[in-house]
Design a binder for these strands. Structure first.
Ligand SMILES: [Mn+2]
Ligand SMILES: [Mn+2]
Ligand SMILES: [Zn+2]
Ligand SMILES: [Zn+2]
Lengths: 141, 141
DNA sequence: CATCTAAATAGAAATGATTTTCAATTGGAG
DNA sequence: CTCCAATTGAAAATCATTTCTATTTAGATG
């Protein structure tokens, strides 16, 4: 995704385009795997002599809220983040070994809505669909 | 579920039917909502003068592994547990307000397998599908 | 019933990811 | 340039969960 695209999205979400926030986006954008806050922090400490880990945590969550970054809840229950070009609502297949993320085009939304809304009369606030496993590449080794 | 049914399932999973383990099952069985380890512990401290919180944590995970209890990852990212009579693979709609759990009969398994296995060549180890929201009852108030 | 062993437990301590606090800094609108 | 809300760093707190180890116990076996 282009840098200018980030800027527009940030502005529309009322997030300032601070150097650190942009750097976090840059790291995520360059990564081919999901990254944890700690990893992102360690990469960025090289570029900024001062950078607090809480800043990374805060920014990641803000970027998720803004819809720029997707959050992955690993089976180990730690949080990871991934910058996905695909802006449509979708889900992920994640490799627990190498960290690769692949889009799942299948979306359960309609069926879930049907069941929860029409049968139970409830209101869906969020849903998680995540598939964990080993990617083709990791399967070989 | 009948007590004797628990005993059989425990035995088949090589879990001893200890008084505390059975008590945990009893508490879960009596509950109409998902419960956290702490809550379960607090209820059981009345019955056992000695009962460690780690024991509750350990047992809950063992019971999940044994397939007797289902684990719920709340949007608040804490763990909750629920004893569901339905032993077939299925998912849940949980109310984030009152803790009610309702079965989602819809299962994405086939489609996910199709996509991950046949398109990506990966292997699914687990998948999470959970719907969070407000139940009919909580919606009214 | 007595014996025996792997499984289970208590209690205390450690863990470690995540969050909070608050004073100082800064982006960017006007 | 000014100004203020947003952002940040540093340190500390939180707090759910796990680990450790000595002790106890379920239940298999004879
Ligand atoms: Mn994606
Ligand atoms: Mn169920
Ligand atoms: Zn992989
Ligand atoms: Zn409810």
């Amino acid at each position: 995704m282009a840098q200018s695209s980030y800027l527009n999205e940030l502005k529309s979400k009322k997030l300032k385009a601070t150097p650190k926030r942009l750097a976090i986006l840059r790291v995520l954008s360059a990564a081919s795997v999901y990254l944890g806050p700690q990893e992102i922090w360690e990469q960025l400490k090289k570029d900024f002599k001062k950078l607090g880990l809480p800043t990374v945590y805060r920014n990641l969550e803000e970027l998720v809220d803004a819809g720029l970054v997707s959050r992955i809840i690993h089976p180990n229950r730690r949080l990871y983040y991934f910058l996905c070009e695909n802006r449509l609502q979708h889900h992920h297949f994640i490799c627990v070994q190498c960290g690769k993320v692949q889009d799942i085009s299948f979306c359960a939304e309609a069926q879930l809505l049907q069941e929860v809304d029409q049968i139970y009369g409830g209101k869906i606030l969020s849903h998680t669909l995540q598939v964990n496993g080993l990617c083709r590449c990791c399967l070989k080794h």
